[in-house]
Computed example of a mutant assay.
Amino acid sequence: MNMTLDRLTELAAQSDGILYVMAVLLLIGLTVIIDRFWFLGRTISRGKRVTATVAQFAHLDRKTLADLVEKSPRLPHRALLEVPLQHPELKDPHRLSELLEESILWQVPKLDSRLWLLDTIVTLAPLLGLLGTIAGMVKAFAVLGDAGNAATQITGGVGEALIATACGLLIAIVGLVCFNSLHNWTRLIVHQLETLKISMVNRLDAPRAVSGEARVAPGDKRHYGPAIHSVANTGT
């Protein structure tokens, strides 16, 4: 173990400490990867059940929405389910769609949280590796000025210097694969939210209620959407 630590310390010194910085980047990247995979994977699984549950209903009422809200803690889908409960007076499907779209826009930054760190690490790691390699090669070729040094010392120094580049590329490859996967998962959750929005608008068409309170009075020129006008026409 001591030999290994001594060797790693020697390699880090050969790169002017760049390997230490890359180790920190790797730790940050792994933390972001584990956190985002856990959060997004859990959100996709639970959000899929919420979206499928809403799609099973022919019509949604407030009580059903309240039950779904209770069963969706800490989910971005919960924010959409709460919109009709926060606006019980809302009758216009188009206005409801706009409010739901606004709610989705508020949720997207939470889904993308900390992914910028992973994106930065993917770009920065190879550059740092190259910088560490250049620093190592400068030291390796510096021995040319001493006639007593063997050629193997030069080649050995160059080989050690290339380790920094290899580490940078390894970090970038792992980070890129995980970043693309997480980005795809984020898009899938946004698609779930859009699907949930459309499902709610289609099933929360309040003017279709049996109570008849959504009938449009004669001469009322406010726009309530085509679904409300169709109900009004059937009632005359």
Results as ranks from 00 to 15, higher is better:
Met1Tyr: 01
Leu8Cys: 11
Thr9Ser: 15
Asp16Phe: 02
Gly17Phe: 09
Ile18Lys: 04
Val21His: 03
Leu25Gln: 01
Leu26Ser: 15
Arg36Thr: 12
Trp38Ala: 12
Arg42Thr: 09
Gly47Met: 12
Lys48Trp: 11
Asp61Arg: 07
Lys63Met: 10
Leu68Ala: 01
Leu68Asp: 10
Glu70Gln: 14
Glu82His: 01
Val83Glu: 02
Lys91Glu: 15
Asp92Gly: 00
Glu98Thr: 02
Ile104Met: 13
Leu105Gln: 15
Gln107Tyr: 01
Lys110Leu: 10
Ser113Trp: 09
Trp116Val: 15
Leu117Phe: 06
Thr120Phe: 05
Leu124Asp: 11
Ala125Thr: 06
Pro126Tyr: 00
Gly129Asp: 04
Ile134Asp: 01
Ile134Ala: 09
Gly145Gln: 06
Gly145Cys: 05
Thr152Trp: 11
Thr152Gln: 15
Gln153Asn: 12
Gly156Met: 06
Val158Leu: 11
Glu160Thr: 08
Gly168Pro: 00
Leu169Lys: 08
Leu170Gly: 13
Gly175His: 00
Leu182His: 09
Asn184Lys: 11
Thr186Trp: 05
Arg187Asp: 15
Leu188Gly: 05
His191Trp: 04
Gln192Glu: 13
Glu194Thr: 12
Leu196Asn: 10
Arg203Glu: 10
Ala209Trp: 00
Val210Gln: 10
Ala214Gln: 05
Gly219Lys: 02
Lys221Phe: 03
Arg222Lys: 14
Pro226Arg: 02
His229Asn: 09
His229Ile: 08
Thr236Lys: 07
